[in-house]
Each structure stands twice: as C-alpha cells, then as structure tokens.
Simulated assay, not measured.
Amino acid sequence: MGTTQVEAAQEPKYWHLKTVLGDALDSEFAVGEVLPNERELAARFGVARATLRQALEQLELEGRLQRRRGVGTTVAPPRIGVSVGPSQGSWPGEGDDAWHAVGCVEAPAPAAVARLFGPGYDAGRSVHTIRRVRTSDAQPVATDLLYVPRASVPALSQLLTPAAHPLAVLRELHRLELENEDRAVELGSARAEDAKQLERLPGAPVLVLTTRYHSGGRVAAVSVATYRADTCRLTFGDSGAMEITHHDTASGEDDRAQAS
C-alpha cells in the first residue's frame, strides 16, 4: 500500500481563495451586505469562476455566507452560541417558548433511541413522538424529536385531537419530578425530514444534541435536537443551562433565552 506525503501536498487553489475571501468578509463587508456578482469577484481575485464557486460554497458551508433567493449572496450573521452546561433541571417546553411543536405521532421509537431508554425497555411499544422547531430571526435553526413512552404519561387521555396531542403530552410530562438529565453532542448529517424543517439539503452538516431525562429511577423521555451547523456553534461553560444567544446585528446587543 502506498503512502501519502501530506507535507508535500499543495493547498487547493479554491481553499486558498476561501481564506482570502474570508479575510475580505471580515474587513470590507458588513453582516447582511450583498457580495458583488461572480464575474466581478473572479476578476478581482484573478481566478476562474469555477474556482470562485468552490470557495463560495465552502464559505456557505462554514456559515460565513448565505444565499438568499432573489437577493444574492450575503454575509451571514455570527453563529448562534449554544452553551451546553450542567443540567438546568426542567422538562422540555417548561417555562420556555422558544420551541414550537409542529406535530405529534405514536409509533415505535427508532432502534437507536429505544436503546437510550435502557435495559428492559420494550422497543416494540409505541411512544409519543413530538416534533418541535426553533427559529431565530424567522429562520429555522433547530428541529427536535422528543420521545415520551406511554408509561411516562399514563394519565394521558386517548381522545386527543392532533393539535392538542403534543401540548397534552408535555403537560403530563411536566407533572413528573425531574431527577436529572444527561447530554451528548456529536456532528452528524441532516436526515431528509430534518433537512426539510431546517431548509437545508439532506446530508448537510448538523450538530445533534441528545438529552435523556430521568424520573422515578428511569429514563422518562429522550430528546434528539438537530441544529444547523452553519448557523450554530457550541460553547461550554458553567451557566447551568443550555443558552441560546441571538445576535442582534442592528443594535449589537444579545438576546438570551434559556432552552430546555
């Protein structure tokens, strides 16, 4: 098997251009400003338009640029800071109106989620699955699937309308005493339904935050939240909660909201 001489490998031209463009974005353009068209940019930097497109696509992937239909390519605002700290001690949707429920179904949880409920969990049983969406400046930045076994909400009425279903599940879940929660974060790829909710293409990079909520000595609910990797960044601190920071580019102030 041959070897690859990494040290001898030359940096692709589009990658170098990406760095140059990134510096220009920081020094010459404001957030929301529309970039010149491809022809002008290619002439300015002395590159082929194909090379320019590769550099622009990479900057968009990294969240530095946004392509808006009918507007063009604009400078993206700073990523939303997602601080993952110690447990806040509250259920999803409890005292938090940042997430909006968009549907609820009853079906067996995916195998990977079923395993998170621990030994003895009947993977074939249906669970209440609530889909929620979070937006910032009218743009979706995260989608969440909250899995709640029937055993966690035994008093839930079976006669529910589709609109009332997610609210009723959350209401019953909030009646339980939350003992603790644990979280894990990983980089992933957007699945088809998540990509649709986030207005991204399937396979786009995402940050997946998985949370297990414990009550009565067992896992009472599991949340799998998917954040756009191009608009979100992770921060770690001792705030005791997961904090979402919305950057107000007009005033320069931060609007902080606590998330479950």
Rank of each mutant, 00 (worst) to 15 (best):
residue 147 Y to K: 04
residue 79 R to I: 00
residue 189 S to N: 13
residue 121 Y to C: 09
residue 76 A to L: 01
residue 170 L to V: 03
residue 169 V to N: 00
residue 199 E to W: 11
residue 143 T to R: 01
residue 80 I to S: 08
residue 134 R to C: 07
residue 197 Q to P: 02
residue 99 W to L: 01
residue 197 Q to M: 05
residue 125 R to Y: 03
residue 118 G to V: 09
residue 115 R to D: 12
residue 135 T to M: 04
residue 55 A to D: 04
residue 196 K to S: 14
residue 67 R to A: 13
residue 105 V to C: 06
residue 147 Y to V: 04
residue 74 T to F: 06
residue 118 G to K: 08
residue 176 L to Q: 08
residue 116 L to W: 06
residue 183 R to T: 12
residue 124 G to V: 05
residue 106 E to R: 13
residue 76 A to F: 03
residue 123 A to T: 05
residue 96 D to K: 04
residue 70 G to P: 12
residue 67 R to Y: 12
residue 70 G to E: 09
residue 195 A to H: 09
residue 186 E to T: 14
residue 121 Y to I: 08
residue 152 S to D: 02
residue 187 L to C: 11
residue 140 P to N: 01
residue 135 T to P: 02
residue 176 L to T: 08
residue 155 A to C: 06
residue 128 H to W: 05
residue 96 D to M: 01
residue 121 Y to Q: 07
residue 101 A to H: 01
residue 194 D to R: 08
residue 139 Q to I: 12
residue 125 R to N: 11
residue 189 S to Q: 15
residue 158 Q to W: 07
residue 103 G to V: 00
residue 103 G to I: 04
residue 68 R to E: 13
residue 179 E to L: 09
residue 82 V to F: 02
residue 83 S to I: 12
residue 67 R to P: 12
residue 95 G to F: 10
residue 56 L to S: 01
residue 152 S to F: 09
residue 77 P to I: 02
residue 121 Y to R: 13
residue 97 D to W: 02
residue 100 H to P: 04
residue 199 E to I: 07
residue 95 G to A: 10
residue 162 P to L: 02
